[in-house]
Simulated assay, not measured.
Amino acid sequence: MRNEATHTFETMTDASALPARVPTTRHYLMCPPRYFAVEYVINPWMDPDEPVDVDRAMEQWTVLRDTYRRFGHEVDEIEPQPGLPDMVFAANSGTVIDGRVLGARFRAPQRAAEAEHFRRWFVEHGYREVTMPTKINEAEGDFAWTGRELLAGTGFRTDPDAHAEAQELLGVPVVSLRLTDPRYYHLDTALFVLAEATDSAPAQVAYNPAAFSAGSRRVLARMFPDAVLVREADAAVFGCNGISDGRNVILPREARGLADQLAVRGYEPVLLDISELRKAGGGPKCCTLEIRK
């Protein structure tokens, strides 16, 4: 199995008995962290007194981008803007399903201007169905597409009313989930989709149960009885902020327990260093907006 961090995934499972995981080619939009900084506090991970190494952040981001390309995925880049240090976290700036684009409206005023830069990028690149939300909506930070429905987080950033707006504008069923731990302030810090649903198989997800309300845990257990339940030690290093193409799963290098869990399921974990970006509360998924045409 792939090993980006000199970690061996040891299992007792016969490799021949593992399910065949088939990757699908993805299209991503990313933003280089040229102006990355931690200048304010809008989540529990941010500390302006802790030094930030922009060059190291660029190196980590570049490895992530190049890893996507190595797996055959298409990666577009948007030009970063001075004064917007969190623009690197592109996932918060749009949700794209069947070519329809629902933009973002940020809760924190420090990030508000990002939404217009991403809106313009989509318009300039030929997307005709681009709608900006009227409710606070932090896009793929709180929206996860399973292939059949849109899982929608609330509790800290995205307004509950934004879930109904997303259903109306994107034309897909939406399932609301409540986050209760401020460390996991976006859905993409607490859950990610490992394999999208197909005509013959349901979606598979990984999530941290402790991040959700009791009712939301029951909903997730009912919808995904075969989910990978992420342990707190892995969640606390942004293990749930992973990216999967159906086989290859990009994770922070510290999430080794989760990597072992996924390897047993037949996935190929790829561990990358995102430690500098985590200083602002971000990981692989935060840096990655998926374009679904």
Rank of each mutant, 00 (worst) to 15 (best):
Y35W: 15
M223D: 09
T67Y: 00
T154V: 00
G83P: 10
G239W: 01
E168W: 08
V75W: 04
A91P: 01
V228E: 09
A104M: 08
A227K: 03
R2I: 12
V22K: 15
I274G: 00
D181L: 09
D226T: 07
P202N: 15
Q110H: 13
A90F: 10
T95V: 15
H125N: 15
A144I: 02
E59D: 15
V249W: 01
D245I: 05
P80L: 03
V205T: 12
F36Q: 06
W145C: 06
N43D: 03
I291Q: 03
V237D: 06
V174A: 05
V228W: 08
A211L: 02
R100A: 14
R119S: 12
R69H: 07
V228C: 11
E196H: 14
R218C: 03
Q204H: 13
G103C: 14
A206W: 09
Q204A: 10
H7P: 01
R247N: 10
H27N: 11
A57Y: 05
A115R: 01
E254L: 12
R34P: 00
V41W: 04
C287Y: 02
T67P: 01
F106G: 05
R178P: 01
E116L: 09
L179N: 02
K135E: 15
L84A: 11
C31V: 10
D53Y: 12
L289V: 12
A113W: 00
L277W: 03
G283F: 02
E124Y: 08
